[in-house]
Structures are given as C-alpha cells and as structure tokens.
Design a protein around this nucleic acid. Sequence first.
RNA 1: UCCUCAGUAGCUCAAUGGCAGAGCAUCCGGCUGUUAACCGGAGGGUUGUAGGUUCGAGUCCUACCUGAGGAGCCA
Length: 440
Amino acid sequence: MAPVSTIAEIGKHEGQAVTIRGWLYNLRESGKLLFPQFRDGSGIIQGVVPKNAVTPEVFEAVKTLTQESSVIVEGKVRADKRAPGGYELDVANVQVLQRVPESDPYPITPKEHGTDFLMEHRHLWVRSQRQAAILRARAEIIKAARDFFDERGFTLTDPPIITPAACEGTTTLFPVDYFEEQAFLTQSGQLYVEATAMALGKVYSFGPTFRAEKSKTRRHLTEFWMVEPEVAYAQLDDIMELAEGLITFIVKRCLERRHADLKTIGRDISKLEKIEPPFPRISYDDAVKNLQEGHAKGALETKFEWGGDLGSPDETYLSAQFDKPVMVHRYPAKVKAFYMEPDPQRPELALCVDVLAPEGYGEIIGGSQRMASHELLLQRIHEHGLPEEAFKWYLDLRKFGSVPHGGFGMGIERAVAWICGLEHVRETIPFPRMLYRLYP
RNA sequence: UCCUCAGUAGCUCAAUGGCAGAGCAUCCGGCUGUUAACCGGAGGGUUGUAGGUUCGAGUCCUACCUGAGGAGCCA
C-alpha cells in the first residue's frame, strides 16, 4: 500500500502515490468520468476516476458510493489549477469500509438546512467543512490563551467543578445531589483562583462553567468554557493591560495559523488585522454620557440612566463606535459582584472592567480588582444576603497576608464567535448545551 | 417569565377560503473536466396536536406543543 497522507499535507507527495483514509464528501459524475470528493478531517480533495483508467470493479465501487461512506483510497497526487486546494487525486484503488445504504442516506446534504434540523444532527453536522474549520479555530484560540499565560509565568490551577456555594446568585445554579448534601456546578472558578494566586502569584484556570440562566439569545449557553487569570498585587490598570494583551495575542495567532479556516468560515479578515493595542478605555461615566447622546440622536430606544448595568443594545451601540474591543471600567458597585474593590477616589464605583468585542459580539471579558479588606468583604457578604459560613475559606484569604489582586474571565465561546464572525455561539463548541436543548 | 415570528414530502420552501406543488435528497436512464454539476423520468403527504367557524380550512378563530429571534440576566 502507498504511504498514508492527510489531505492537508498531500502537496508534499506531488507526483507520488498516496493512501487517503476518510469519507466520501460528495460525488459528481459526467458519463464515464467520476469526481468523488474525499474528506479526512484535515481537508477535502477531489478524486478523478476515468472509466478507462481503472478496473471495472474500482469504477463501479466509486460510482455507487454514497455520501459519508468510509473509504480508503489509493491514488497519485497531481497539481491542478482547477482544484480549490491545488491538488487532485488520480484514483487507482478504493476500499469501501462501510457503504451508507441508500435506504437510509446521510441526512445532511450539500444543500441548505434549518437550524433545528442541524442542531438535531449536531453529531453529523460537525463533519461539514465550515463546522470543522470553526472547531479548529476554537482549538487554536484555547491553545493561544494557554500559551499566552504559560509563556508569562502563570501556573495553571484547576478549580473544582462541583462547589458547595454560589459565588453570585443562586437562581442560576445547576444543583447536584452530592451524597447527602446539596452541591452546585460551578459558575466561575474565580474564588478558587484567588486562593491559588495567593499561593503561586500568577495563576489561571481553564475549564467549563455552568449557568442555569433562562437566556435564549445568540450569546448564551448554559455550559461554557472560561479562561480566568488571577494575579497577586495586580491593580485594575494591570488587569486591563493583561486583557488587552491576551486578546491581541489570540487574534494574531489565529491570523497566523488558521488563516485558511477563517477564509472557509467566511470571516472578514481585515477586521481582525486592526486588533492592536491600545484598546479604547472609557469610564462608565463617559459611557453613560455617550449612551444618552445616542438616545438623543434616536439611535437607542431607551434613555440610559446612571446607575444601571449596560443592556445588550447599549453594549452594541458603544462597541459599534470602535473597530477594536472597548474596555468600559468603573461601574457602579451596586450592579456588580460583592467581591469587587471600591474605587478609593469614589467608593460608589467598583474597580472593574468589561471588555466589549467589536461588531456587536458583546462582553467577552469581565474582570476586576478584588476586595482586599476582610472587614469590608464581610460587610458585603452580609449586604448581599450570602451565608457567611460558606465564604469562611474565602474570607481567610483576607486574614492571612491580604494583598491587592485582580483578574478576569474570558468566555471562550464568545471569543470564538467574534473571531470567526459567527451568528450564534452554538457553533463554537462541538455539543452546545442551551436552554431547551440537551440533545445530542 | 415576557414580546415577536414560524411549524406543509427525508431537507429547503410554495400554494387568493376551492384538485397538495417545486428544487434538492433517494431510485432508473444520459453525459470524459464536474465545482452545492447538469439533462430526462419515477417513487415519496395524518399540512405540529386538539377543538371551532364554513357548503368547503394548509389558509380564518381558540387552546396547547415544538422551534427560532429578542428582552431581562450574563461571559
């Protein structure tokens, strides 16, 4: 048998016989000439089978192949201008491992389908070129995020997924029966990385988080992945700089290594090429002014009042004014989590930042400087009606060598949706978990 | 939880209250350079469910179910 090659690397074997192991993507025919397209997970290549060039058995085997039948194909690699990938395969032999019967054909045809149908067949949909390209981009984004932190002296520390208490409200928690006790799936690893940051200085976590929010929008999943750095002695400005550096690094990495996939997905790459530091930084106060001007101009339906959290249309309006992610900092403490450090200049504000992606993709990062004072943190826990007992360990961090520190969480799926230019986050993860969708 | 929209062949969609249709997929036939190939033919229907109005309902009304988009909330 000829040496095995992936389709992505087939150019290295030009003029030679190779073996491709994969599936039939599509078959076109023109009389005594067959054009089977094979895919193997790395790419797609068109085979050419003239009737007079192969045995009758091979011709018949290819002619009767059905979509997604598994095949091992031997043939000679030939450069061809007409081929989208630059190469074609002159097929010499075909071994059919499993032929999909025409009585029960592969349901996803090369024509268009609706979202419901595609989601029901997500286990097969991931075989489509575009979906495979998105999953490769996701893998690159995750690797880039990890490389960014690994190369800067951060230690990966994995927080627990089963947790005893909420770090924010309890209505959005998935309960778990933990032997005799009530436990929950984690909403964020943040509180735990604060603990490991006090041990190791610079840490990050990467893992799944769960939120039982009844949100049904293009930006929400009930199960999503976050990367959460936490840095001892870091202040708000350090956190903003870190977020800016991370986003820039990830985008550049995708442009370098996943250029072909971004093109397959149909991303406007020029928009990503503009992502360079510094990102615009605007205070909440200025954001409010900006939104009120937007309302006066008729661009926003409701007039935004100081004191509220930014709504989705507000975020879209703000981010549309920039071609880079925009960092909105110092929100009113009341609308933010209990653990955020107040601004010493204006204690009604929290030292926090939200990073809004361009093109209406919304908040991709939320972060803050964390509260360092034991006394104030205890007071906030009480004000939020949280059980002090559950946070005893967290309060300990402020008793034993408390320091200024901070960090943020970046939602992987939203970052992938933005970088790939997708309509919906459901395409950014192999098997999305959403409100009203648990299958497959 | 609320608002809006949709549900007809395996898929994507048509059908003024008056005979249930097309393209793709599947099957049969044709074509030696096709690019979601094309051309000819065939099979394929409990119009989401339950009621109601009407001589007559895919179409109008009511309720429910399912899905989509959005709000709130969030990454």
